[in-house]
Design a protein around this nucleic acid. Structure first.
Lengths: 137, 137
DNA sequence: TTCCATGCAAAGTGTTTGCAATAAT
DNA sequence: ATTATTGCAAACACTTTGCATGGAA
């Protein structure tokens, strides 16, 4: 079932704005800021407001259709890949962000003695480096 | 050599404000927001301004005396532990942040085929979970 | 005496909110 | 006809900046 249909079946009122916003997330490895979503959505619906973009992004996160990615720059990014658990590879030069799928159990790196009694642990990894385009030659 | 002396030897003008700000970072596992630094520094120097706190924190980062930790809440946090490379364990309930020292090579989890040609890779891990105080019983 | 550091207040970002008008159902 | 959604603009939280004053060297 496609995104739009999933949303409809959950009682969403389907407006041109929401459709335009949801449509900006077609593709697997996309990480848009609210600003970028706004710019793109306005191509289809010029009168869409930033408030609606923010509202809709929050909704999509709440419904599990988007994942919020924090701490990679001044602005949040939204990632439509919620099916496959993954991590991120960030270029320090140009801020390019790529999905990556590390292998092995990342939690194994944290010995029980270092867990400070925490439960329900999960590991979130950001790999940082320099992408080929930004590498000095 | 102590922090204050290191700063002096690098040509810092030592003011009461800077001393008060630097002094808030005594201890190994401290992660203060600029606001928290401001509150604490004002105990010693009531007239210190937020601008000076921000200026000084930036300086300390530039000099390698503090590490900036992003993306763990609305505000940045500053971490005085720059000697021992480490990662963070965050409580989803109360935002408590603890330094942890994972074992093994975290980069090994990312196969060459997944590195997209990036160079100079480093892994930054945030372990998330629920601390003992926040765990339902 | 020099000039860096400070405090203040204004401005800048990114995000959230209140509310009347609008449009999907 | 109902009521969720929208756009606007104001409010917000955090951070940065400009500039005259003050203080360390």
């Amino acid at each position: 079932m496609h995104l739009i249909d999933r949303l409809k079946s959950r009682g969403w009122r389907l407006t041109a704005q929401r459709r335009a916003i949801a449509d900006t997330f077609s593709g697997p490895s996309i990480h848009l800021t609210p600003e970028e979503v706004w710019v793109r959505a306005r191509v289809a619906v010029p009168e869409v407001s930033q408030a609606t973009v923010y509202n809709t992004l929050h909704e999509l996160v709440r419904l599990g259709e988007l994942r919020e990615v924090d701490g990679l720059g001044r602005s949040r990014r939204y990632d439509p890949n919620t099916h496959a658990p993954h991590h991120h590879l960030l270029c320090d030069g140009c801020d390019r962000l790529v999905d990556v799928f590390p292998e092995g159990d990342l939690l194994a790196s944290l010995p029980a003695a270092s867990r400070h009694g925490f439960s329900g642990l999960q590991a979130e990894v950001v790999y940082r480096g320099t992408c080929p385009d930004c590498a000095p030659r």
